[in-house]
Structure formats: structure tokens, C-alpha cells
Amino acid sequence: MTADAFDALYRRLASATAWAAGERGALIALTPRHVAAAAQEIRSGRTVTLAAPVETSTGPDSPEPARHTMVAWSEQADDQGLHFARDSFAMNVHGDTDSHLDALCHVIYHGTLHGGVDADRVTADGATALTVEALADGIAGRGVLLDIPRLRGVPWLEPGEHVSAEDLAAAERSQGTRVGEGDLLFVRVGHRRRRAEEGPWHTARARAGLHPDALEFLAERRVVLLGGDANNDTAPSAVDGVDFPVHVLAMHAMGVHLLDYLQFEDLAPLCAAEERWSFFCVVAPLRLPAATGSPVNPIAIL
């Protein structure tokens, strides 16, 4: 995609989602009515995590893994009285391995945040607009999983492959489901399965993800949240001069929060076995004041 074509797509999507203003962005379309209706998706009551374990080992896709440090442990305690094992964690929230949510202040494009908010609202001390704190009450709604490797008859998409708007529509038809207004859309490219079976690689250089035109599908259906098992963006980028076009379109133009590096290897087999690809979903980011994102453990409830 040329830079001019991307700019035209950006303007088209921003215009189509002009309703997604304010601190919560597109999530304003997720009304209590939508949440109550989504609760009807619960049938068996089975819960499934959509998050991967936090990565604490250095690798080609985790040069800055989370640091887990024991503060107190059994060897420091004598045999008398009460003692507590204690530990601490430190994490690069926006890395290429750990499941996380991107707040709308994460993407700065042409000097602004989503909705034209000035980028100077993000400082060395944190952000003062569009932060993860806007999601303090959590996100709950109807989740829909579209499994693109299943559609193509492969275990995973290879790094560099794109998911188009046509792919999303075809996956809907193949799975007998439909994405609608207020839905949380999850798109599987098989990143986690490939990593488990082939080993980690330098995902910043090569990974499967959505083509920028896939965002037209989201705008048409009024999707309020997008989650993927990789970064959502393909690498190398499909757009001249824009490294993360899906992040720019989803978050900056449309106000759609992103969930990166989830895992669907537990959920997808259950959906296939039950022949239904929608479920109730709860996403609860941490309350981190002034933060641009949060580690997250979304839960699907079938």
C-alpha cells in the first residue's frame, strides 16, 4: 500500500468512526444493553484464558523479558512463627511476547493522539489523557474469534502473511458466525502455535498480522476492541513509511483499543468442538495511573 493510499484509508476510517470520541474511544458503543445481551452467550459456564504466560527468559523476541525477583523465601525464614514468601515483577508492557492491552495514548501520529489530543499529554512522568485508567471498570461483552489458519487449512500463517478484510468475511461464513456492533473481535493467525512448535524468532522483523484494509471490516461492523495472538500488525509493514499501520488506523483513527500477543490455542479447539465462535469475554487491565498500557488476562466464558 502506498503512503497516499494509506492516508486516504486513514481519513475514510476516521470519518466513519467519528462517533468514537473521548477517553474510551470506540468502547462508548459497548453499552449496558450490549453487555446484558452478551451474557446470553454463556451456556456451559466454562472459562478459558486468552493470555500467554509472562515471559521471563531472554530470547530473539524477548530482549527485555519481565523480571521476577524473590524478595523473601523459605530459606530466609527460621522454623518459628509466621513468615511470608514475597516477590516483585517489572515488565516492558509493550514487548513482543507478553499479552497486553494498548491504551489509546500509546500511539502518537503526526504529533497527536486519538481525537486530535495533543501529544504533549504524554510526558516522562506518564500520560494525562487516554490512559489505561479510562478502562478502570473493565471491558465485558460478546467476543468473536475468527480463525484464519483454520480457514486456509494450515496450522499457522507464516511471518509476513496478511489477513485482509476479505479473509475476515470469509472466516465468518466458514465458521457460521457474524461480527456485530459492540463486539470484541479476536483474530487468530497461529503465532503462538508456531512459536511453540518452531521456537521463538525475531518477530519485530517478521510476523503475520492484519493488512490495513482489514480495518474497513471493523469500521463497517462497529467493532469496539481488536485482539490478536501476535502484534496485530504484519512485519514487514505493508505501508511505505508507516511501520505499524494497523496500530495507527485502529487506535489513532478509530479509537479501537488493541490487545497484542494473546493466545487462542486453548479457546479455538473448544469453539470448533462446540461449533460456535462467540462467547462472553471479560478484560480487566490493571489500574495503572498515567500508563500507556497494561498486562492483561482476558477470560472467555462459554
Rank of each mutant, 00 (worst) to 15 (best):
R194H: 10
L184R: 00
D147H: 09
G190S: 11
H191Y: 13
R194A: 04
R150Y: 12
P200N: 11
E216M: 13
A206W: 06
A208D: 02
H162C: 15
G176W: 09
G209N: 04
T177M: 12
S164H: 13
G160W: 01
P159R: 03
D147L: 01
W201V: 06
R173F: 11
A170D: 05
V189P: 04
W156V: 01
L215P: 01
D213S: 10
E172N: 14
T177S: 10
G160Q: 05
A171Q: 00
E198T: 14
P212S: 08
S164V: 10
E166Y: 13
G209L: 00
A165M: 10
P200I: 04
G209C: 07
D167Q: 11
R152P: 07
A214D: 02
R152W: 10
E197M: 15
E220F: 06
L218W: 00
Q175I: 05
D213F: 03
L218F: 05
L184S: 02
R178K: 14
L184G: 02
R222C: 05
D183I: 01
Q175G: 02
A169M: 14
P159D: 03
R194C: 03
D183E: 11
E220G: 09
R194W: 05
E181A: 09
A169N: 09
L145K: 04
H202I: 08
T203L: 01
E216A: 14
P155S: 14
S174M: 13
L185V: 07
A206K: 08
A169K: 07
T177I: 08
E158W: 15
E220D: 14
D213H: 08
E158N: 15
A204Y: 01
L157K: 03
R152H: 14
P200R: 03
F186M: 09
D147R: 00
R193S: 12
R195M: 13
V187N: 02
E181G: 08
E161V: 09
E197L: 15
I148C: 05
R188F: 08
A171G: 02
R188E: 06
L151I: 09
A171D: 04
P159K: 03
L185T: 02
A169C: 13
E158R: 15
L184F: 07
R221H: 09
L184I: 08
F217C: 06
R188W: 04
L151V: 11
V189I: 15
E161W: 07
L151K: 10
G176N: 12
V179T: 06
L151W: 06
P212G: 05
G199Q: 13
A214H: 02
R195Q: 13
R193D: 15
G180T: 06
G182R: 00
R205L: 08
A214T: 07
T177Q: 06
G153Q: 12
S174H: 12
A196D: 15
S174T: 12
F186P: 02
E197T: 15
